[in-house]
Amino acid sequence: MVTIDPVVTVDPTSLRERIVQTRPTVVKDTAGYSVFRVVNAVVLILACAVMIYPFVNIVAQSFSSEGYINAGQVNLIPRGFNIDTYKTVMADHLFWINYKNTVVYTVVATSIAMVLTTTYAYALAKKRLRGRSFFIGVAVFTMFFNGGLIPNYVLINALGFTNSIWAIVVPNAISVFNLLVMKSFFENMPEELEEAAALDGLGTYGTLRRIVLPLSKAVIATMVLFYAVTFWNSWFSAFLYMDNAELYPVTVYLRNLMAGASTANSVAGGVASEGLAQSEASIQSVTMVLTVLPILCLYPFIQKYFVSGVMLGAVKG
């Protein structure tokens, strides 16, 4: 019978005492500092409210009836509670097809973009790469110059990408800004780590996969978020390259829906029709809630990496 030695445990209280002991003596806050803290808190709470209010207002509007929205009587709480606009928007099977498209486009495009950006950035981060400045130049060039709308369309069309996911994925696969942020992150990674990995017999790809990537969670999470949000919100490439409503992402669907509600479409010609009389404001708010919800759910999980990741470009490089 094998016995296992008990794991040595450290008493947490003693540890805390030790830490406290090593800390310098706590200086009592001066009066000025206390005032600063109060003011700080007030300002931050106000700033928070300013940012949260529009969002809550939109949510409230999305559940309110048209009359109250138009009369400007909806603030934080829905008035004339109803979910008719939600029902109308969600009853359309095209909405779900387009929503599915958005999810597929976002997942595929983000994955491909991450692979390409990471590998490109990692290679660029190596000073020993031959033609390094050329490859950087090629990327940076596209930040300032592009072919323009019609040449791009002609190119994508000639490549046979129109009406396929590739029209959305390929032209946007590498964001140069993201590439440069990742490059500077990799450049600042201690070279010794990789040398050690090489000594232990890892090749370039092994080093990237088993040493560098696990240490790059912050930047990867940030990039995933950047790309995912961009692809989720993007409608322009889809609108340019898709000829068929069933291929649109949900953003194009909702844009179109709003356009339909806001066009002075006098077809109604004075006949009251409850179905058509959804107000623009109501559709607009439902639209925003529905599109923003999934990506909003993503934020809390990435938040902790995000703060450190987004600072990368600012302080290093």
């Binding site: 048209e66 009359g67 002075a264 006098s266 109604a268 010609g269 004075g270 006949v271 009251a272 009389a277």
Partner: peptide
């Protein structure tokens, strides 16, 4: 014609 209906609502 259409906005009239909205205004009435």
């Amino acid at each position: 014609a259409q906005e009239l209906i909205g205004a009435r609502t």
